[in-house]
Write a protein that binds this DNA or RNA. Structure first.
Length: 492
DNA sequence: TTTTGAGTTGTTCGA
DNA sequence: GTCGAACAACTCAAA
């Protein structure tokens, strides 16, 4: 029919390979995508939203905002490679069935996910697709190790970080990240895609994400920019500076990692390239942070309900007070302790909170207010751009003391002392609690102790322009020690 | 099987 | 101001 010899090449009749994107929104070091390209066949890329999932796979509202922009960036990147990203709603079975019949594809590829629901779903889908004669293959890339593979000498999961780190280092073999494909062959006809805007992943009523744009660039290019900025800047001195919330002393890579816009291998590898020119302490400290992420996923793999149950059963009997008004004051950054309030407001305004301050606010919620750590876990999951199922649950359990490798019960952060040690001149507090910005450094972390004349000169009226403390530190500390002792006594 | 050393991030108190 | 001890066992991981 068609006399043009160019049109009779076999490429035109090759059936496409389907690539299902999830938390791997990148082209570089994406094994599933590269395997698809390597077949020489056209590639159909899709992202799937479960019916009724208003966050489309994101952990919470804040991360849904990130997901929106990350999907948009991925779609653009695929277009630059001559392809597209399809957005589809439905159960995986139904959507994949439709795609295979529309495109004539017989192969589906994806990168593995490790959350309990994801593992269960993927296992089911894989076997049912294979039963129907389709080829299905999954790849690694979200983590640097497979969570089921690292075990102690007694074939048990690790529950203490240090031995896990040593075992990880022993077996880990870094490899060069694979470059993004030069081009990605498109199918003759693309199946229809939904419009990203129709998913309503960004706020529609009050725009609580208005401040996010200033701080973040979602997407793979943004991830690489963040990595470069870190390697040029904050990694030098990281071991010390990472604890100072008033400066940019951390990598700020966490939201990118959470969405898989950059692979952990790539990050590890980048620190390797700089190993000779930087202090070992800084690099090792940073690598250990990366491996904490691996450890958290290792724990979650072996305890799928880690976000909802106490790893240490003794805590099931803990007498939480769970005062709703105090929880709300904490969420809104109105506890009366400036370092706590600055942190909670940074979280709300920017979708992120400095790591040091995360520990302080978590300790305050759990130990000063005696509110169940799960309430904090839920709030972080909904408000953090970097919300990560495993890291979030493991970290909250660590602070509460019910984790496998947990902070001892008597480790209670003093919010005044933490503020004065890590934010000595109050730079951080002043940025997020501007109503305190005229207080002298001496009182910036303890406005409730400032003489009336000092308060007046700074324009602070306690209880009016800034709250009185929800609880007195000394009282709260003793109360927490008593409560924690009760559950250890009950176990005997 | 038993033993041994160790365990992310703190605070307070008294010498 | 600085320093070490107490806060409490407990359990993990490896030898």
């Amino acid at each position: 029919m068609n006399p043009d010899p160019r049109m009779s090449s076999t490429a035109a009749v090759k059936s496409p390979v389907l690539v299902w994107f999830r938390r791997d929104l990148r082209l570089e070091d994406n094994l599933a995508l590269l395997a698809a390209v390597a077949t020489g066949r056209p590639v159909v890329c899709f992202y799937l939203r479960a019916p009724g999932d208003c966050h489309a796979g994101a952990a919470g509202g804040a991360q849904a905002w990130w997901l929106h922009h990350s999907l948009s960036a991925l779609a653009t990147a695929l277009e630059e490679k001559g392809n597209r990203l399809l957005l589809l709603t439905g159960s995986p079975q139904v959507v994949i069935d439709r795609l295979t019949s529309e495109t004539g594809s017989d192969t589906v590829l994806w990168n593995r996910r490790y959350d309990p629901d994801g593992i269960r779903a993927d296992t089911d889908i894989k076997s049912s697709l294979r039963q129907r004669g389709l080829k299905v293959e999954s790849f690694s890339g979200f983590l640097m190790h497979e969570p089921h593979k690292l075990l102690t000498g007694e074939s048990k999961r690790y529950s203490v970080y240090s031995p896990f780190w040593r075992a990880f280092e022993r077996q880990f073999q870094p490899f060069d990240p694979l470059p993004a494909p030069a081009s990605i062959a498109a199918p003759a006809v693309f199946p229809e895609s939904e419009l990203l805007e129709s998913w309503s992943l960004t706020p529609t009523g009050p725009n609580w994400a208005a401040g996010f744009d200033d701080d973040w660039q979602p997407g793979e290019a943004g991830a690489h920019n963040a990595l470069h900025a870190f390697l040029e800047g904050a990694i030098d001195g990281y071991d010390n500076n990472r604890d100072l919330p008033g400066i940019h002393g951390t990598s700020r890579l966490s939201p990118h990692l959470a969405m898989g816009e950059i692979s952990p291998h790539r990050i590890w590898n980048a620190t390797q390239a700089n190993f000779d020119s930087l202090p070992t302490d800084d690099l090792m400290r940073f690598r250990k942070e990366l491996v904490w992420r691996e450890f958290s996923w290792h724990l979650l793999f072996h305890t799928p309900d880690m976000a909802s149950i106490n790893l240490n059963k003794r805590f099931d009997a803990f007498a939480w007070l769970n005062n709703k008004n105090q929880l709300q004051a904490w969420q809104r950054g109105m506890t009366g302790y400036p370092i706590v309030d600055a942190g909670m407001r940074e979280l709300w305004q920017t979708g992120w909170m400095h790591n040091r301050v995360r520990m302080v606010v978590a300790s305050f919620l759990i130990k000063h207010l005696l509110i169940d750590w799960r309430a904090g876990e839920r709030w972080f999951r909904d408000t953090l751009l970097d919300a990560d199922h495993a890291s979030n649950a493991a970290s909250w359990q660590w602070v509460a003391g019910c984790g496998a490798d947990a902070a001892p019960y008597f480790r209670i952060f003093n919010p005044i002392k933490q503020g004065e040690t890590f934010d000595p001149d109050g730079t951080y507090v002043k940025e997020y609690c501007p109503e305190l910005s005229r207080l002298p450094a001496r009182y910036i972390h303890r406005p409730f102790e400032a003489p009336p004349a000092v308060l007046e000169q700074a324009g602070v009226v306690l209880g009016k322009t800034y709250p009185q403390p929800l609880v007195a530190h000394d009282f709260a500390r003793k109360r927490a020690l008593t409560s924690y002792k009760q559950i250890s006594a009950q176990s005997e």
